[in-house]
Design a protein around this nucleic acid. Structure first.
Lengths: 390, 390
DNA sequence: CTTGACAACCAAAACGTTTTGGATAATAAT
DNA sequence: ATTATTATCCAAAACGTTTTGGTTGTCAAG
C-alpha cells in the first residue's frame, strides 16, 4: 500500500489518529498570504516594444492593430502567463462573467437537502453558459439587506439569481431600486405590479392535482403538514390544498392542517396529534409540503406501526420536490417534481437575456417544450409523480 | 386561488402551457444591461466636506480620524447606500473574502450526485466563515489549464480549493508555480515531495476495512466494480481492495475486477459478465467504488432476479460516499461515509490558515476530534456504515 | 504638389479604492 | 518663547485595465 508516507498525517474523525509533521518543508516552498508577481499588460508592452494601448487592443481583437504585431503580442502574453486582472477590468465597467446565486438557508437541524441540490445543479448548469457562479448563502432575507446591497454595489457580479423569495421580499425592492440585473426563483405577493422577471413552480396547481388524485382514490380526510411560512412557495402550496378541498365541497379542518414544522421531533408530535384523534376523524392521507417533511412523516408512521401505501387501511403520504432520495424511500414517495435542471437553465437564460438588455431569450437558447413569448415571468408546472406511497 | 394574474405566463414542461405577455411594462421599469449609478467614496467626501482619504480611513476604522467626523461619514455612507467597489479594492491588493471551489465534472449521463452534494455542502459551510464561494466547475483538469491560470491571475479570489485531484494533476503545479494559496481535496501521487496542503479521505483504508468485514462474513469471491481512473481516489480505493485480498491470501481475479464503468448500461453489462461465469466462480459480494455505481448494481441484480443482503445465497453489495440516498435504498446500502461536513470545514479552516500565512489552524477553529498538529496534509478515515445490503 | 483616406500606433484619462508621506493646528513640555 | 507631541486631516501615487481622441506616415487620387 502506498497511502502512507513519512510526511503524511492520518486523522480519523471516528477512528484512528496517527500523525507526522512536516510543516518546515511546507513553509519554505509556498509563498502564501499573497500571490507572486503576475504579469501585467505593461510587461507585455515592454517586451513587445509597443504601448499598453496596443497590447490591450491586440488582445481584444480590435482591427486597428497590425496582424504581425498582434501575433507577437499574443505570443508574449502566452509566454508570460498573462491574464488580465478581473478587478482592473471590472473597474472599467467590463462584464465579470460571474453571476451570484443568493438562496436562503432556513434554520433546520441538518443542512437543507433541497438547497444543496439547488446549488449543485445551478453550479453545474453554469458550465454550459461559461459563467462563474458566486454562491452567497444567507440565513435570512431580513438580517443582511447589507449583503445584497454590498453584492450589488461591489461590482463583483454582472447579475443575481435570487432564490427562496418571500411573500414580501425586500430584496426584490432593493435590487430594483439599485437597478441590478436579477432574476428570481419564486415570487413576491406583488409580482404583478413590481414586474420583475422570475421563474416559479406552480405549487398551488401541483398540490391541487395531487389532492384531486387522492380524492379520486377515495380519500376524504386529507391532512396537510407544512413547514413555516417563509418562502412564498409555502403559501401557494397551502392555498392549493385549501382550494382543492373547496372544489370537492370539503373544507380545511384545523385539526388536520398543521403548520410551522421544522425539526423531526415537531413532525413526530404532529403525526401523533393526528392519530390520537378519534378513529373516524383520523386522516387517511397526509400531504407534506416538501420531501424531507414527508420522509419524517414516513418514519413517524412506521414508528407508530402504521402502514403507508395505496392499499385499503394504509395511509397515503406525499411530498414535494422529488429530491433524489424520494424514489428510493420505502415505500417510494409519491411527489411533485420540481424540474431542477430546467429551472436552472431557464433562470440562467433569462438572466443572460436581461444582461444583454433583451426582453427575449435567444431562439437557439430556448429550452424546447416551453412557450418563450417573453422571458419575464415564467410559471412552471411541477410534474406529478405517482409512486408507491400514495 | 390567487396564483394567476393578468400578466402571468404559465408554462408546463410536461403539462399545460398558457401564457400572457407583459413585456412592455417590464421594459419600462427595469434599467438593465448595467447598474444604476452607485455612490462612490467621492460622493461621500463631497457631502461630508472631507477628503476621500478621510472617508476611506473613517470607514476602515483608522485612529487618525476624529470621532465626530467618523460618525458623520458613516451616516452619509449609510444614507447613500455606499458599498466599496470590490473591484477597486482588490486592485489595491485587498482581500476579496472570496474563495474559489474548483471541482471537476466527469462525463456521466446525469449530473454527478456526489459533486452536487459537495458543492452544496461547501457553499453552506462558507456561511460560517463569512466567505463567498466562487464555484468554477470544469469538465477536465487538462483542457483548461487556462481556467486555473485565469482564476489565479485575475485576482477575483483570495485562494482556491481544488477538488477531484488526479494522480498527476498539473493544476497543483500551476498553483504552486504561481504562488496562489490553495488547498486540495485529494492528492497527487507525488504529494510527499510537492508538499502542498490537502485533505483526503483514506479510501484504501476504508475499502480494506470493508473487505475484511466481507471476508469475516464468509465471502471469498469478492468482485470489485470501479469507475474510470481519473481522480486519485479511484486508484487508492482499488489499491485498498487489492491489498485486503492479499492480506487474506487471496489475489485479485481479473474476471471479478471490472473498471472503467460510467453509464448504467456498462454497469449492467459488467454485472451480466459476473453472473454468466460458472456458478462456482460467481462473486458472492460486489464492492462498488462509489454509491451511484452501487445503486446501478443493485438495479442490475434485481433485474436478474438476484437477491441482495446479508443472508446466505444473497449477494452482498457495498458502495462508497454515503450519499443521502444510500440510507433509503432497498435494501439500504452498506457503505463508507465521506464526512462531507467535516471535509468542507477542514478545507476551509486550512485555507483560511494559509491565507493568514499561518501553518496552524487557530485553536478555536479546530474541529474537535482531530489532531491539529499542522494543517498541511490531512487524511481522514471514512466511516464504515453497515446497513442491510452487506 | 496637394489633398484625402487609411493603416498603425499611442498618450492620457478614467474607473474607485488604499496607502504613503506629509501638512496644519492645537496642546504640552521645556 | 520655543520645541516637541499629538490629533486631524489631505494631496498624490498606485493598482491594471479600457477607451477616447488623437498623431504619424504611407499611398492613391486629383
Amino acid at each position: 500500500m502506498v497511502t502512507s508516507g513519512p510526511n503524511l498525517k492520518r486523522f480519523g474523525i471516528t477512528g484512528d489518529c496517527y500523525t507526522t509533521n512536516q510543516s518546515n518543508r511546507l513553509e519554505k516552498n509556498l509563498n502564501y498570504g499573497g500571490y507572486e508577481d503576475v504579469a501585467t499588460i505593461f510587461d507585455i508592452a515592454k517586451q513587445a516594444g509597443v504601448s499598453i494601448t496596443t497590447v490591450s487592443r491586440a488582445l481584444n481583437g480590435y482591427s486597428d492593430v497590425n496582424e504581425k504585431t498582434r501575433r507577437r503580442v499574443v505570443e508574449i502574453a502566452g509566454k508570460l502567463n498573462y491574464y488580465p486582472s478581473a478587478a482592473a477590468r471590472s473597474l472599467q465597467g467590463k462584464k465579470t462573467n460571474t453571476i451570484a446565486f443568493a438562496p436562503i438557508l432556513r434554520e433546520s437541524g441538518e443542512p437543507d437537502p433541497f438547497l444543496k441540490e439547488f446549488i449543485g445543479t445551478m453550479a453545474i448548469s453554469c458550465l454550459s453558459h461559461d459563467l462563474s457562479l458566486l454562491v452567497m448563502v444567507a440565513t435570512s432575507t431580513q438580517d443582511n439587506s447589507e449583503t445584497y446591497r454590498e453584492l450589488a454595489g461591489s461590482g463583483r457580479v454582472d447579475g443575481i439569481i435570487l432564490a427562496d423569495v418571500e411573500p414580501q421580499d425586500h430584496r426584490v425592492a432593493i435590487l430594483q431600486e439599485l437597478g441590478i440585473p436579477f432574476v428570481a426563483f419564486g415570487r413576491t405577493t406583488d409580482y404583478a405590479s413590481l414586474a420583475y422577471p422570475f421563474v416559479d413552480v406552480d405549487g398551488a396547481a401541483g398540490i391541487q392535482e395531487l389532492v384531486n388524485y387522492l380524492y379520486e382514490q377515495g380519500h376524504r380526510r386529507i391532512a396537510y403538514l407544512s413547514d413555516p411560512v417563509n418562502s412564498s412557495c409555502v403559501v401557494y402550496r397551502h392555498n392549493g390544498y385549501r382550494e382543492a378541498l373547496i372544489q370537492h365541497g370539503l373544507e380545511e379542518n384545523p385539526q388536520l392542517s398543521i403548520g410551522d414544522l421544522v425539526h423531526e421531533q415537531e413532525i413526530k408530535t404532529a403525526v401523533a396529534r393526528l392519530f390520537e384523534l378519534p378513529f373516524a376523524e383520523q386522516p387517511t392521507a397526509i400531504v407534506a409540503s416538501h420531501d424531507r417533511l414527508a420522509l419524517n412523516v414516513l418514519y413517524a408512521l412506521r414508528e407508530r406501526g402504521l402502514s403507508v401505501g395505496k392499499g385499503s387501511g394504509q395511509i397515503a403520504v406525499s411530498g414535494f420536490d422529488d429530491l433524489p432520495f424520494a424514489a428510493y424511500l420505502d415505500p417510494s414517495l409519491t411527489t411533485l417534481r420540481q424540474p431542477m435542471g430546467a429551472i436552472c437553465t431557464i433562470l440562467l437564460e433569462m438572466l443572460v437575456a436581461v444582461l444583454k438588455n433583451k426582453s427575449e431569450v435567444e431562439p437557439e437558447n430556448q429550452l424546447p417544450g416551453l412557450n418563450w413569448v417573453g422571458p419575464q415571468q415564467v410559471l412552471l408546472r411541477p410534474e406529478f409523480i405517482v409512486r408507491a406511497s400514495a
